[in-house]
Design a protein around this nucleic acid. Sequence first.
DNA 1: CTTCAGTGGCTAACACTGATAGCCTCAACG
DNA 2: CGTTGAGGCTATCAGTGTTAGCCACTGAAG
Lengths: 186, 186
Amino acid sequence: MTSPSEATETGMPGTARGSARKAQLVAAARHLLETEGIEAVTIRRLAAALGIRGPSLYKHVPDKAAIEAAVAIDGLTELAEAVRGVPATFTDVSRAYREWALAHPHLYRLLNTHPVDRSRVPPDLEDRAAEPLILATGGDLDLARAAWATINGLVDLELARRFPPGTDIDAVYSAAARAFDTARAD
Amino acid sequence: MTSPSEATETGMPGTARGSARKAQLVAAARHLLETEGIEAVTIRRLAAALGIRGPSLYKHVPDKAAIEAAVAIDGLTELAEAVRGVPATFTDVSRAYREWALAHPHLYRLLNTHPVDRSRVPPDLEDRAAEPLILATGGDLDLARAAWATINGLVDLELARRFPPGTDIDAVYSAAARAFDTARAD
DNA sequence: CTTCAGTGGCTAACACTGATAGCCTCAACG
DNA sequence: CGTTGAGGCTATCAGTGTTAGCCACTGAAG
């Protein structure tokens, strides 16, 4: 059997699958990522964080990409939760999104870098994360997706320091909010 | 002297600095990137493309990051040129931007990944690239930056296939155009 | 109680990566 | 003619992900 942890952990699907060691592993990976950046997340350092020796990691995980995917899903879930429940306004959603991203810059960049294979992410997660924006656009799906792209772009440019120096980023967010709020009225 | 090509090539600053070999090198790097993706751009493969042996590359360039930076600036210049001169409308600018990005996906992703150290990019390049959007927003700088972020986000999500399957991406662009066009009127 | 299988460690090794040190050749120039 | 430097080269290093193969221990079956 190549995948021994198939139904050992009470068969609970989703996040908690895979022996507790794997959860510990993902936690360590995330900690390493958030504190030292993506280049610090190496198989050997990760193993050292668990007190084991590198190759032993492969007894718990097929490859490094699986670890990254698990961390990404972890982050994605948290981001969705940070956004869910805020008032259904572009301003509020974008603020929650931005604040989470700025609080976890490396993790956020991992989300953008790593495709996060749609099949691995719980299908309802995406819907729940998208809901506030859809409400904010009065049910206009296309406009909601445009707003999503906007927030993504804003955060990405800020994290990469691509705005010209001296840019009032809050003002840029306000301008975007103006655009999407008035578009909803149309 | 650690940087021998300081003033050899008629001292011409900017892109054409560094002996012709370096231009050849950057061209090879870009070709490799565009045809086989970022992971194919390796020192040894790059050297092989020039008929030399790997370590010899370091006679022309301090490190790999410098090559990536040069390629990125190359792409950025081209992208700016693709955008410059189109009608000053969100729709037209975003279309030009999107088409260039879809035609050069790996190169575009490199631009987003690689910071492109603002000091290395010709200062007027950014201004000329930004000009159509500023015109499109009636001179509102913040709105123009929001629009820039939007286009960036749209292209990034499309390239990463992060839109839900079946999404009509053209419709999302139209929705964004509606938002920014009506916001300008305000 | 013993045997036996599987989990989860380990070391050694491989094929890569970017990068450095040191050598050597050849052309240009004083 | 000699010197110098540009630009090749090989050998090598540290570090990456990953595999092979070995071994200890634990828990269940006979």
